[in-house]
Design a protein around this nucleic acid. Structure first.
Ligand code: ZN
Ligand code: ZN
Ligand code: ZN
Ligand code: ZN
Length: 200
DNA sequence: CAGCAGGGGGCGC
DNA sequence: CGCCCCCTGCTGA
């Protein structure tokens, strides 16, 4: 729908690095790499090679199948660092920390140039674009909150903070008490904890 | 809110 | 290319 590339010109990709030159001729999807386009093409072909043995679920990637299988096994390898909430997939932990108000003191997206902190990725991206136009890579900076928390250990990427199971004192409290660790705030990875994260 | 699935992207082999 | 991570939408209690 973008342009009429069906004439055959799309067969020859111009050597433009940095541009999303891999276009899907069916829906106009622009992928940055050929691998992304290959995975995207699977959606149009309906190719779902990974099937669940216990139900009729089928997925295009094994990662999603592995995630789905936990709903049958009941395995909950992910857990919230600040409460006893556990889940079978990391996305629930993400929602639990980011979108809910249960741990209001926790801000997963913290601006490296000011004291702004939020839990909404879009708000953080808008903050970088509007209030810090000098930053030229807000599209990349707003990504990667680093929520993935495995069963025993929960690491917050980009931050030195490491959360261990049944750990009473969090390393992130250092970010509150002693913010003298500017560190490499190259993104949104570091979490800031204000007030009491677990007590509300 | 919690649970679950869909889809894009990055990285290392 | 396989694997993992990240963000989002939908649904039901
Ligand atoms: Zn397409
Ligand atoms: Zn199943
Ligand atoms: Zn929690
Ligand atoms: Zn800022």
């Amino acid at each position: 729908m973008i342009c009429d590339l069906s004439a055959g010109a799309h067969l020859f990709f111009p050597p433009v690095p940095g541009e999303k030159s891999f276009l899907c001729d069916l829906c106009g999807f622009a992928g940055g790499t050929r691998h992304a386009l290959t995975k995207h093409r699977r959606q149009h072909t309906g190719e779902k090679p990974f099937k669940c043995q216990l139900c009729s679920f089928a997925s295009t990637t094994q990662s999603h199948l592995t995630r789905h299988r936990r709903v049958h096994t009941g395995e909950k390898p992910y857990h919230c660092p600040w409460c006893h909430y556990r889940s079978n997939c990391a996305e629930n932990i993400r929602k639990h920390i980011l979108h809910t108000g249960k741990h209001e003191g926790v801000k997963m997206y913290n601006c490296p140039k000011c004291e702004y902190g939020t839990n909404a990725p879009m708000d953080f991206r808008n903050h970088l674009k509007e209030l810090h136009p000098d930053l030229e890579n807000p599209d990349l900076a707003y990504l990667h909150a680093g929520i993935v928390s495995k069963s025993f250990e929960c690491r917050l990427k980009g931050q030195g903070a490491t959360f261990v199971k049944a750990e009473a004192t969090f390393a992130a409290e250092e970010g509150l008490a002693g913010p003298g660790s500017p560190g490499r705030s190259g993104g949104a990875g570091r979490a800031a904890v204000h007030h009491h994260p677990g007590l509300r």
